[in-house]
Design a binder for these strands. Structure first.
Lengths: 235, 235
DNA sequence: GTAGTATTTATCCAACGAGTTAAATTCTCG
DNA sequence: CGAGAATTTAACTCGTTGGATAAATACTAC
């Protein structure tokens, strides 16, 4: 691939180089974990020399932490574009779930990175001042949405926003992150488009039913192609 | 601490040796993942020579798969001791959730192993005929419980048992498996006894509210010491 | 252009880590 | 007891891997 033009042996591009290194590192770390990742492979994937990693980013651990911080930055950035305050509480929750679901689908590396970091007992994250200062806007969003929902009579109870946030993430994350083993256990492909649609509908139904007390679509009625076509638009 | 008696240099114990090796391997793989695990460390932890691993189990991958299969065997065995059919549907669901939650708390290695295997895209699990034949009894249990709940009017809708099973696992698994990173993000210890009690109450409340349509304890009222004291008893 | 700096390449290496070899020790059974 | 099998030990192999060194090449300012 590389740049086709110019007879010159190569061209300088510090910024591009750095970005390609981080992109390659992200792929590598999410595919193999921290211990399984290979510095040489990252260099090759980035179309760079191994020395460049150390020059532009640092050693393997620096590389890893930078990737991890970037992943959190990315999701936080997208989260901020979602303003749920304007919507009816039930719709806001549905939108939140759909966003979370689709974000995880669009960013499987994020799931893998989180799993890897949890295997490390968040040792690196704890040292990152950067990540600790990036608060998710969702907790406060959820708090106001839930409170409004209770006031308006949409919701039965004022669920703790942190618990709700974790639960929504859990219902999406676990299914997608563990789809490989679950697919073996249940003997069916949980990542087929139909299976994914069914899962999203189930999650939305489950959470909304718990909040509103009304059956909603908890049984898992097919939302068919609608949710899928929205996948790219959300965010 | 090894055997204190006998001046003899050592003593033979093939069965014990194999078990110690597998126990050490389980700790090692769940602590470091497949790539991060060190064969030498497993040997040392098992109070054995490295050669013994190859003699009694096989190479690193064999070791890993054996551990993984054992982990599935263990949980399936405990699952079978739980008969939910005799209970009222809502109680059966609560019991199922409490069991799942406590099993994950008592077996953090299981969570780590599953994460590791999913990072491997279930490559090893797919090759295991043993695991594929170990069906969880829960899916059928849930199906009958849910159906009975609907007939009796306890539940609003006949939720798909597989989705419900996955959701219950998700709500417990994600919280515990990701507690390290989540604790950093939220700036509080999610593994404190109070936090754990609160979480279990939330999960029970959420699922039962969705099924029954009644508020239950969805808001997360403290079950205090009761659930905790039951932790060892369950299963 | 040229001196100085930033960026990139080409090698090297010491440590590590999975797996092997061969010998030693203990057990079993006639 | 003694031969043969099972189990355990110690030492070694050999490819891999993170990281380092030093030289080369491109860019910038003058």
């Amino acid at each position: 691939m590389a740049k086709a033009s110019r007879p010159a042996k190569w061209q300088r591009d510090p910024e591009g180089m750095r970005l390609r290194i981080l992109a390659a590192a992200k792929r590598e770390f999410s595919a193999y974990g921290l211990a399984g990742a290979r510095v040489d492979r990252i260099a090759e994937e980035a179309g760079a020399n191994k020395r460049m990693l150390y020059y532009h980013v640092g050693n393997k651990e620096d590389l890893y932490l930078t990737v991890l911080e970037g992943a959190y930055e990315d999701i936080r950035a997208e989260e901020r574009t979602l303003d749920l305050e304007h919507l009816d509480p039930p719709e806001a929750i549905e939108r939140l779930i759909t966003f979370t679901w689709n974000y995880f689908i669009r960013n499987p590396e994020f799931l893998a990175l989180l799993n890897t970091e949890n295997l490390e007992r968040a040792a690196h994250l704890k040292r990152s001042t950067k990540v600790k200062s990036m608060h998710s806007p969702f907790v406060e969003m959820i708090r106001t949405v839930v409170n409004r929902g209770v006031e308006r009579g949409d919701f039965q109870v004022a669920m703790d926003p942190v618990q709700l946030y974790i639960s929504i993430a859990a219902l999406c994350f676990f299914y997608l992150s563990n789809s490989a083993t679950l697919s073996v256990i249940f003997g069916r492909n949980l990542l087929s488009p139909e299976a994914k649609d069914e899962r999203l509908a189930h999650v939305v139904g489950l959470v909304l039913a718990a909040l509103t007390g009304k059956p909603a679509a908890a049984a898992g009625k097919k939302k068919s192609a609608k949710a899928r076509s929205l996948a790219t638009t959300t965010a």
